Amino acid sequence: MSSLDPNKSLPPLPPLKSFSLTHILYDPTHPLSIPLTLLSLSPIFLFVSYFTLLIFTRRLTILLLATGQVGNEVLSWLLKRLLKGDRPYMGHGEVGTGYGMPSSHSQAAGFLVAWGIGYVLTLASRGTSRDGGKLGMVRKIRNGIYVVGLILWSLAVCYSRWHLHYHTPFQIVVGYSAGLITGGVFFWLTEYIPIYHPQSPLGQIRKRIEYLWEGVGGVGGWELGDAKGGWGEGWLLLGKEVKEKKTK
Rank of each mutant, 00 (worst) to 15 (best):
T22L: 12
T22F: 14
T22V: 10
T22S: 11
T22W: 09
T22Y: 10
T22A: 13
H23K: 09
I24T: 13
L25N: 11
L25Q: 13
L25T: 11
Y26Q: 15
Y26H: 13
Y26I: 09
Y26T: 11
Y26F: 11
D27N: 13
D27H: 09
D27T: 08
D27E: 12
P28H: 11
P28C: 11
P28K: 11
T29Y: 07
T29K: 15
T29F: 07
T29M: 10
T29W: 09
H30Y: 15
H30T: 14
H30W: 15
P31V: 13
P31Q: 14
P31G: 12
P31W: 13
P31E: 14
L32M: 15
L32F: 15
L32V: 10
L32G: 14
S33C: 12
S33N: 12
S33F: 12
I34V: 14
I34Y: 14
I34M: 15
P35S: 11
P35H: 09
P35D: 10
L36S: 10
L36D: 10
T37P: 13
T37W: 06
T37M: 13
T37L: 13
T37D: 12
L38K: 06
L38N: 08
L38Y: 06
L39W: 00
L39H: 05
L39T: 11
S40N: 12
L41I: 10
L41N: 04
L41P: 06
S42Y: 12
S42I: 03
S42H: 11
S42R: 10
P43H: 03
P43V: 03
P43Y: 06
I44S: 08
I44E: 06
I44L: 06
F45P: 06
L46N: 05
L46V: 10
L46F: 04
L46H: 03
L46Q: 05
L46W: 06
F47K: 02
F47L: 00
V48F: 07
V48Q: 02
V48P: 03
V48E: 04
S49P: 01
S49T: 05
Y50K: 01
Y50M: 02
Y50C: 03
Y50S: 02
Y50N: 00
F51Q: 04
F51V: 08
T52H: 03
T52P: 00
L53C: 03
L53Y: 03
L53R: 03
L54N: 06
L54I: 04
L54V: 04
L54D: 05
I55C: 02
I55N: 04
I55E: 07
F56L: 01
F56N: 00
F56W: 09
T57H: 04
T57V: 01
T57S: 04
R58C: 01
R58F: 00
R58K: 01
R59N: 06
R59Y: 01
R59H: 05
R59D: 08
L60F: 04
L60M: 08
L60R: 05
T61S: 05
T61G: 02
T61Y: 00
I62Q: 02
L63A: 07
L63D: 00
L64I: 10
L64R: 07
L64P: 01
L64D: 03
L65H: 05
L65W: 07
L65K: 06
L65D: 01
